[in-house]
């Protein structure tokens, strides 16, 4: 099946000469959740805005469901729902009216039952007659999501959906995304929070300086780039790493009370067995051992540093 979203060498240079996108190419499959990670000013929002029609591409092309977003903007945009980063809502309008407006704008006929379902799912039903200015920040964000979902989009863009949102609401948001995935909606979200990508994404893209540094399956990415650390707590503290253990990548931690062994998970032999027998051979007693996988965050920071270098 053809990808639902195809981005082909997309470039965007703003009037002032700032190159926000320097040729992004990316295919997104139907039903997947892609998290775009990147620092501020990396080009995440420009990428979304260019796909959705808010900014015009300088060159390159985007198709949604096979429709070109410029030449066939009607068909392409009908498939897209957008939740912007900023909370942009008309303050004096009711939740119901503002959601109804979006549905109409996208050419869908009035369907109160469908809107009710969306509002209930987002716990907004009892607020439907409230003016948006009376809502809390988290509720406003839900209204934006309700608007984006009001016309049953096939592709949903969430631009930093959990920025400035409390922990509980963030968990809620993740549940909503999981629900959408179950319904077959393709979700592209941008985030600063690595844990967010780790928690909900199928694939992770890292963008910086207008370039897509990598896009990869989340677990594969973590396995490929993930290093693991084995922490060995010792019975007796050591002053230095014993000479007999020099062949292992060991560092002392906790003032000599622990040894940290870093190894690569993708290699056939991790060297753990050899290390443990070497330790016992050297007469070093163990109190406890634990392992830790490096997080996406570390991978991400490493990549962004690399690209800046």
């Amino acid at each position: 099946m053809a990808p639902i979203l195809q981005i082909n060498d997309l470039k965007k240079t703003y009037k002032g000469g700032f190159e926000a996108l320097k040729g992004v190419t990316l295919d997104i499959e139907e039903g997947e959740i892609l998290a775009l990670l990147g620092p501020n000013g990396a080009g995440k929002t420009t990428l979304i805005s260019t796909i959705c029609g808010i900014t015009m591409p300088s060159s390159g092309s985007v198709t949604v469901g096979g429709f070109d977003t410029v030449a066939q903007y009607r068909q392409a945009r009908s498939l897209i729902g957008l939740v912007p980063q900023e909370i942009n809502l008309e303050p004096f309008e009711t939740v119901w009216n503002t959601v109804r407006l979006t549905r109409g704008l996208f050419g869908k006929s009035r369907d109160d039952a469908a809107l009710e379902k969306i509002l209930r799912r987002l716990s907004l039903w009892d607020k439907k007659d409230s003016k948006t200015k009376e809502l809390s920040g988290g509720m406003k964000r839900r209204v934006l999501i309700a608007k984006a979902l009001s016309h049953d989009p096939k592709v949903l863009f969430l631009d930093e959906p959990t920025a400035g949102v409390d922990v509980e609401l963030r968990k809620d948001m993740w549940d909503i995304v999981a629900d959408l995935k179950r319904d077959g909606v393709t979700v592209i979200l941008t985030t600063h929070y690595i844990e967010e990508a780790e928690a909900i994404a199928d694939r992770v893209g890292v963008i910086n300086g207008g370039k897509l540094l990598l896009v990869e399956d989340k677990t594969a990415l973590m396995a490929r780039m993930g290093q693991k650390q084995l922490t060995i707590e010792l019975r007796e503290p050591l002053a230095s790493v014993p000479a007999g253990l020099a062949e292992f990548d060991l560092t002392l931690a906790q003032d000599g009370a622990a040894l940290v062994y870093t190894y690569d998970t993708k290699q056939d032999r991790t060297g753990i067995t050899a290390l443990l027998s070497a330790l016992s051979g050297a007469g070093i007693g163990l109190r406890d051992i634990s392992t830790r996988q490096s997080s996406l965050e570390e991978i991400f920071v490493g990549l962004v540093k690399e690209s800046a270098a």
Binding site: C52, G53, I54, Y73, R74, Q75, A76, R77, S78, I80, L82, P84, E86, N88, L89, E90, P91, L101, T102, L105, F106, G107, K147
Partner: peptide
């Protein structure tokens, strides 16, 4: 002007309307 001022213009620009 009002949608431009408060930012809701994004919706108009991203909608499938001429």
């Amino acid at each position: 002007y009002f949608p431009k001022f408060i930012g809701t213009i994004y919706e108009l620009l991203s909608a499938p309307v001429s």
